[in-house]
Each structure stands twice: as C-alpha cells, then as structure tokens.
C-alpha cells in the first residue's frame, strides 16, 4: 500500500478546515468536516447529490455568507489564518480564492472586457498592464490561440467549452492562489471536458485547486487527493489512487462501485 502513495503527501496545507459545521437555518448541511487542501495539488470532492459538496466548497471563499440564515462553526484556514476572522475582507479573500461554477457564466461583454473586469475593479487602469493581464490569463487558460483574433467580440459567441475556459481566465486575471471549481465540466462535451482536464493539470503547478465533480472517472483522472462526502460528513479522504483502488471504508467502496447513490 505504501508504494501507492502519491508524491504530494509532503506538500503544505494551503487551506484546511477543522471540525467545520454549517447550518442553513435549522438544517445542518456540514457535520464536523476536517479536510486538508495541499498546496499545488488538485483535491476532488465526490459524493451523491445533496451531500454538501457545493456547500463545503462555498465555505472556502465565504460564498455562503451571502445566503441568509447560514451559520458556521469550526475553522477554515488559508495559509494557517482563519478566513472567518473579523479583519478579513471577503472581497479580498475571493480574489485569493476564486470560483468557477457549473454553468459557464461569461458577462455579456467582449472577451477582453470579461478578463479585464476583475483587474479594473482591483485598480488596474493602464492599457498596457491590462493587455498583458488579458493575454497572460487567456494563455494560462489555454484559450489564447482560439480567441486572439476576436478579443473584442462578445464572449457569448464562444462555445460552452471556450466559455468555461474564459471563466477560468477571468479568475486567473485577478491572480488567485486557490481555484474552486463546482462541477465545471458538467455542461461540456467530451472534447471540451478533456481540454478542461488538461488545463486543470497544467494549472496545478501554480495554483491549488479544489474540484467538485459527480463524475468519478474525472475525479480519478484529474486529482491527487479525493474526499468522499455523504449526508454532510466527510467519510474518507486519501490519495486519489487509494480511494479508487482500495478505499478503507465500505461506504466509500459502495458508492464508487455504484452499489448505491
């Protein structure tokens, strides 16, 4: 078993949750979740619909704050500092911990302006700087070659797969450290999905990635670590290889072999 261990065990915890509980009014959606998120790795969260994957992901950049009646207990750390401390500005936090959603959501503006939007808000005004950010972000999102001749056309004219990479470029443009992805490929065809998975693989050398996916083969392909959630609890967390070849816990095994869920 030892020989199966991935080479990322020694990476430091970029983020970490400790005994995390989350309540939507009276309903407890997360129960005592403790999970490390290793720097420069991809962590996949799997589990049946409604088990709390998206809720958990949103706690990592305080996106739940905007949902009324949400209460949280326990700790969420970024570089060992609590992100729920009073001094933390959620807007600054979300710049460091960016998010990509299930459906690509480009703004109804040009490709260029989609990418420049965040940097402008954060105070970049100079044309040269913006040009550079736009190009670098599109390159990093493996989209540059496909759109460089139509940067000023509407982003809505892009294919679904291109839109999803555009959204990733938009996240990259504000120079994040962690990227959260909530079922980012679920609306994409197989070729766009493969491109997105390649991109995730490339991005992890510079960023830390957490991806929620209902596609277990995808989790197996892209991630270094996998956490299995069930009814708000994190049942098992391990090196992805171990989870998919020899998980320790029967409920994990039953789920990934399709025996329930």
């Amino acid at each position: 078993m030892k020989m199966l261990k991935g080479g990322y065990m020694g990476n430091k915890n970029k983020m970490e949750t400790r005994n995390l509980n989350l309540y939507y009014k009276g309903f407890q959606a997360l129960i005592n979740v403790s999970l490390p998120i290793k720097e420069n790795t991809v962590t996949a969260l799997i589990g049946p619909s409604g088990c709390g994957k998206s809720t958990f992901l949103r706690t990592l950049n305080r996106m739940n704050d905007v949902i009324d009646g949400t209460r949280i207990e326990g700790e969420v750390l970024l570089d060992n500092d609590s992100i729920y401390d009073v001094g933390v500005d959620p807007v600054v936090l979300r710049k460091k911990v960016g998010m990509v959603f299930q459906r690509p959501n480009p703004f109804p503006m040009s490709i260029y302006d989609n990418i420049a939007y965040g940097p402008r808000i954060h105070g970049h005004k100079k044309k040269d700087t913006l040009n550079e950010i736009v190009e670098n972000s599109l390159r990093a999102a493996a989209l540059w070659d496909e759109v460089k001749d139509r940067l000023h056309k509407s982003a809505l004219g892009l294919s679904g797969g291109q839109q999803q990479r555009l959204v990733i470029a938009r996240v990259l443009a504000v120079d994040p450290q962690v990227i959260l992805m909530d079922e980012p490929a679920s609306a994409l065809d197989p070729i766009s999905t493969a491109k997105l998975e390649d991109l995730i693989h490339q991005l992890k050398s510079n960023y830390t990635i957490v991806i929620v996916t209902h596609n277990m083969q995808q989790a197996a392909r892209v991630s270094d670590f996998t956490g299995f959630f069930l009814n708000g609890e994190m049942i098992e967390y391990d090196v992805t290889n171990t989870i998919f070849t020899a998980p320790r816990i029967k409920r994990t095994e039953d789920y990934i072999t399709g025996r329930f869920g």
Partner: peptide, 9 residues
C-alpha cells in the same frame, strides 16, 4: 464499465 475499487481489484 470503468470499474473502481473492489470491482477493479
């Protein structure tokens, strides 16, 4: 079937 875990084993 792209089996996993005990099915894969």
């Amino acid at each position: 079937q792209q089996p996993m875990a005990r099915d894969l084993r």
